[in-house]
Write a protein that binds this DNA or RNA. Structure first.
Lengths: 195, 195
DNA sequence: AGAATCAATTGACATATGTCACATTATTGC
DNA sequence: GCAATAATGTGACATATGTCAATTGATTCT
């Protein structure tokens, strides 16, 4: 097996016990892709036909609200991303997924996933687990939004996703936690003064 | 089949194509229970060992934050409720589920569900679908929390869950949408004046 | 039915945050 | 490397909302 699929293998076998042979049979369904910073994996109105395992890079998910972008997710190395509802239900996506850095992904189509379901039930179970992961992510986001003040929201993100704060611009973080970028800027300067 | 299980059967066969025989084999696992207003299905720190189909009544899910209750979900007739993460992962619940009205539920234990998994794979698929429903609920809640003003949040709930507003006290709704009950009270009087 | 408890309303006030405007600093592209 | 563009930081100000307190209205329980 080429080394480029080694990390997705670890990622999957970390979630679920899977025989090496079973995994290797899926290799033909995987496609390695390079995505340029600023490019989109998914856009509003289209159906997300692939799920992407991120080998390198960083993506944001956002939707448009009154013409403004609202970020809902940041995904980086060693995780999977897609417009979940669109991918699962084959319906038009309400959101965009954009690369914030040059990225390398391993792409798996919905068709491929269905044929893997047929070949081995472990792929069904993996799908169920990925839905559970999505639930956990949504729960985490609800928590992030439920904090009362901008400062609390930022400090929470600082501990729950420190790498996001290191790599994502302040305007995108502000949008994610639901405060204006000016307020977040003031919160940050206030915090750095205290230290 | 006694009539008391007719509605849960409709509910399940609405989600997934299921042979009548397959469903009937599960009947022995269902338990009918009556819950008094104010009583709890799940409390913080315990493991949610059952999932409940609600035949009658209304439940709220909440957690404690700095000693204050924060509502996260209202469930009523013809839907299922449990502390999802606790039930799925067999870990201590971080939330409470309380009856806001006298209720009748049909209860299914985690053990029973696992044995149904063995008997027929349609129950596995049902489980995945219930997780998708949970995802949709969480997404809806994120949307509710993402509106900017108290008025927008309330008006959204008014259209998305009108029955909740009819049956749930204002203090619980305020907690759900993340505003103080005083503010919600003012928002409501403002809205009724305009009409 | 009446007492007691709980829920909702309303007023006064302090404040966190959004918005606009502009200055400053980074980043990008040629 | 330099111009152009984008991102971030700050000040001034208006306002939506939380908090506290007091009142009114509704439920509950014996």
């Amino acid at each position: 097996m080429s080394t480029e699929f080694q990390d997705i293998k670890s990622h999957i076998t970390n979630l679920i016990q899977m025989n090496e042979e079973v995994f290797n049979l899926a290799l033909g369904h995987f496609t390695l892709k390079h995505i340029k910073k600023g490019d989109y994996l998914v856009t509003e109105g289209t159906i997300a036909k692939h799920i992407a395992y991120i080998r390198k890079g960083l993506f944001r998910t956002f939707y448009l609200k009154d013409g403004n972008e609202v970020n809902t997710c940041f995904c980086m190395e060693n995780s999977m991303t897609t417009s979940h509802e669109s991918f699962v239900n084959k319906k038009a996506s309400t959101e965009y997924i954009q690369a914030l850095e040059d990225a390398t992904i391993i792409s798996l189509s919905h068709e491929s996933l269905l044929s893997l379901y047929e070949s081995n039930s472990e792929w069904v179970e993996l799908s169920r687990l990925l839905t559970e992961v999505e639930c956990a992510r949504l729960t985490e986001r609800i928590k992030a939004l439920s904090f009362e003040t901008a400062k609390e929201k930022y400090l929470h993100l600082l501990t729950s996703q420190p790498k996001v704060i290191q790599r994502v611009s302040i305007q995108h973080i502000a949008s994610y936690i639901g405060v204006s970028r000016e307020t977040l800027s003031r919160v940050r300067s206030q915090i750095s003064q205290l230290q």
